[in-house]
Amino acid sequence: MRNIDTDEFERLVVAELDLLPDEMFDGLENVAFVTEDRPEDGSLDLLGLYEGTALTERGDYGFGELPDRIVLYREPHLAACDTEAELRDEIHVTLVHEIGHYYGFDDDRLHELGWA
C-alpha cells in the first residue's frame, strides 16, 4: 500500500473512532489514543497495544493517575494492508481489540458483544 504519513494515519484513526458505537465509550475514562510509527522493538508484527490496567483488575484508581494508552502502530498497519479500505478495517479491528482489553474482555467476549 502507498505510504500514508503520520497525520493522514491519525485522521484515519480518528475517523474510525467516530464510527464506533457509543456503548464502547460509556465506561472509557482516562484513556489516551495515540499513534506511533512502530513498536519499541521495531517489529511489524504488532498493530496495537493497550498500556494500562484493565477495569477488571483495578483496585483503587483515582486522581493523579496517568492515563492508560491505546497505541496504534502506523507502519505495521501499512505493511498488513493493500488498500485504504483494508487499512480502515484493520484500524477498526485494532481499536475494538484494544478497547476490549481496557474493559478486561477476551476475544470470545468481544464476539458476544458484537465488537469483533
Rank of each mutant, 00 (worst) to 15 (best):
M1F: 07
T6E: 13
T6Q: 05
T6F: 12
D7L: 11
D7M: 02
E8L: 11
E10D: 06
L12I: 09
L12P: 02
L12C: 07
V13F: 03
V14G: 04
A15R: 14
A15P: 00
L17W: 05
L17Q: 10
L17T: 08
D18E: 13
D18M: 09
L20V: 12
L20E: 05
L20D: 08
P21T: 10
D22K: 15
E23D: 14
D26T: 15
L28A: 09
L28T: 07
A32D: 14
A32I: 07
A32M: 12
A32E: 14
A32L: 15
F33Y: 07
F33N: 06
F33T: 03
V34T: 11
V34L: 14
V34C: 05
T35S: 13
E36R: 07
D37P: 13
R38T: 13
E40G: 13
D41M: 07
G42E: 11
G42D: 05
G42N: 10
S43A: 12
L44G: 14
D45A: 12
D45S: 07
L47M: 11
L47I: 06
G48Y: 01
L49G: 08
Y50L: 15
Y50W: 11
E51T: 12
E51Q: 15
G52H: 02
T53W: 00
A54E: 03
T56W: 04
E57C: 10
R58T: 15
G62E: 10
G62N: 09
F63S: 09
G64V: 04
E65K: 09
P67Q: 08
P67G: 11
D68Y: 09
D68E: 13
D68A: 14
R69M: 10
I70D: 01
I70H: 01
V71T: 13
L72G: 02
Y73A: 00
Y73G: 02
Y73H: 06
R74G: 04
R74Y: 05
E75S: 08
P76C: 08
H77L: 11
L78I: 02
L78R: 03
A79H: 13
A80F: 04
C81K: 05
C81S: 10
D82W: 06
D82L: 09
D82T: 11
T83D: 08
E84A: 05
E84N: 11
E84Y: 09
A85C: 00
A85D: 14
E86G: 08
L87W: 01
L87M: 05
D89L: 14
E90W: 00
I91F: 00
I91H: 01
H92I: 13
H92F: 06
H92W: 05
H92G: 08
T94V: 09
L95T: 04
V96T: 11
H97K: 12
E98K: 12
E98H: 10
I99E: 02
G100F: 01
G100P: 01
Y103R: 01
D108R: 09
R109Q: 14
L110Q: 00
L110W: 04
H111C: 10
E112C: 06
L113Y: 00
A116G: 14
